[in-house]
Computed example of a mutant assay.
Amino acid sequence: MARPLIADIDLDALRHNYAVARALAPQSRSMAVIKANAYGHGAVACAKALEAVAPAFAVASLEEAETLREAGIRHPILLLEGIFEVKELARVEALGLWQVVHSDWQFDAVMNYPAAQPLPVWLKLDSGMHRLGYDPESFVDRWSRLKAAHRRVRDLHLVSHFASADQSDTAQFEHQWRVIESIRQRLEAPLCIANSPATLAKPVTHGQWNRPGIMLYGSNPLESELPAGVSLKPVMTLRSRLIAVQSLQGGEPVGYGSRWHTSRPSRIGVVAAGYGDGYDRHAADGTPILVDGQRCPLVGRVSMDMLTVDISHLPEADIGSEAVLWGRGLSVDEVASHGDTIGYTLLTGLLPRVPRRYHSGA
């Protein structure tokens, strides 16, 4: 009998969420961000599920793009961090990839590369996050030089990244937007700046291209509720089963370090899932888990292969009862909040030993 921990991946939910992103920005083209193995969901399967509707994909590295090409994905693929070594340009050209340029060594590599055809370049502006990209005046200079290099570069786009688009109202976002808009107007540059939060809540940022990521997988990246009328569906449901039930008296410790003790006679269910699978070891007592569809609190520290849950209020729950760690009926964002983290971390942190099972529909 196989270990019961499974990640169910609902590809219809993925397509629904992509349709939401597209409907929010009908004048933009929305490339689907499927970096980090599609946020833990499986990049090849997600790309194939979206290839009929998404005009392009975005990944973090050449290796991620190569995996998609080897699987038969022929759509344009943008390298969000560009190349990491000059020698990668040959593969970028051979695979027909788009690339971000954010540093002068990348700029020089593109300008000196003897490409058979001009290479698409997405030039990165540091509009205030101060992570990657050129300051505004340097950006204008590099843009002008790339624009003049007709035989080496084509399809120039301005790309930048917001540090706080997930927040309701911040001076930092307004500053970044003013910087971007001033450069856009000055250069008449096509934009790709709207990530998931901006796609959802900042329509002024919708450009020729948007790049939704985490929202495609059903997670809400905003600090607030989703906008009125917007509904995202969880794509991954991580589920397991109870593999043991302990009946304990009051005052008994549970788990490593005796962090939690029973306060009364209790039934404790043992779930086949742990930090060796990607479930957060920092999850606090009280983190919700669905057992047979009913909310139950996690109790005690998460182990490598198991965790424990108080099922005292569920007399029918027993060995074999289903346990949903996150997904349908239990938001990954709510679970993440109990470990002082975010849904991105849990989804991308799901380890390879957890089988992904793909399906469409309920």
Rank of each mutant, 00 (worst) to 15 (best):
G128S: 12
Y134Q: 00
D155Q: 10
P76V: 08
E81A: 12
H130M: 14
A115S: 15
M129N: 13
H157W: 10
H150Q: 11
A116H: 14
R131Q: 14
Y113T: 05
Y134L: 00
H175I: 06
M129D: 11
D155T: 05
F173Y: 14
Y134N: 07
G133C: 10
V179Q: 05
E93C: 06
F139D: 02
P118V: 04
L95C: 09
W122Q: 05
V159N: 07
D141N: 12
R145L: 01
N112S: 15
W143N: 05
W177F: 10
P136N: 10
V86G: 00
G128E: 04
L97D: 04
A163Y: 11
A94R: 12
S144Y: 10
S160I: 04
L89Y: 00
D104T: 12
E81R: 13
E93Y: 01
W143P: 02
S144T: 14
V100L: 07
E88Q: 15
A171I: 14
K87Y: 10
Q99R: 10
R151G: 15
Y113E: 08
R145H: 03
L146N: 01
A116T: 15
S127H: 02
D135I: 14
L78R: 04
Q176P: 07
L89W: 03
F173I: 08
L158R: 06
Q176V: 03
R131C: 12
V179T: 11
L89E: 00
Y113R: 07
E88K: 04
R145P: 04
D169W: 13
V100D: 01
F173D: 06
I77R: 03
K147C: 03
A116I: 13
E93T: 05
Q172M: 14
G96T: 09
R178T: 10
D135H: 14
R74I: 06
